[in-house]
């Protein structure tokens, strides 16, 4: 099992305590009603889906409960780093 460093608990915890929550740094449009259907579709459904380095959200659901961000390689499944929600992209 992978051990994931929770930036809030500041320790490595077993993967079973965490849940994946999709690509990180997707900002909700400030005024959705001004968007075209294509723009709204892009916000809701279209993701980078890279082969390799990926900034993504995780939640320490069975721990401190907090959402945070991680950089994980989608090929090797290795976590490069994790950082608190609200911090700039790494």
């Amino acid at each position: 099992m992978i051990l994931i460093h929770c930036p809030y608990c500041d320790e490595k915890r077993p993967e079973l305590e965490f849940t994946y929550a999709g690509e990180a740094h997707i900002a909700r449009p400030a005024d959705p009603s001004t968007l075209s259907d294509e723009e709204w579709e892009r916000y809701l459904f279209i993701r980078a889906n890279p082969k390799g380095r990926h900034n993504e959200r995780w939640r320490h659901s069975f721990g401190c409960g907090r959402f945070f961000n991680a950089v994980r390689d989608t090929v090797t499944d290795k976590f490069e780093t994790t950082y608190k929600a609200g911090e700039p992209r790494k």
Partner: peptide, 17 residues
């Protein structure tokens, strides 16, 4: 429970699974 309980010190409390 997947936590490393050998290193879980007396007095600690946590949410886990």
């Amino acid at each position: 429970c997947p936590l490393d309980l050998e290193r879980f010190a007396v007095g600690r409390m946590t949410r886990t699974i």
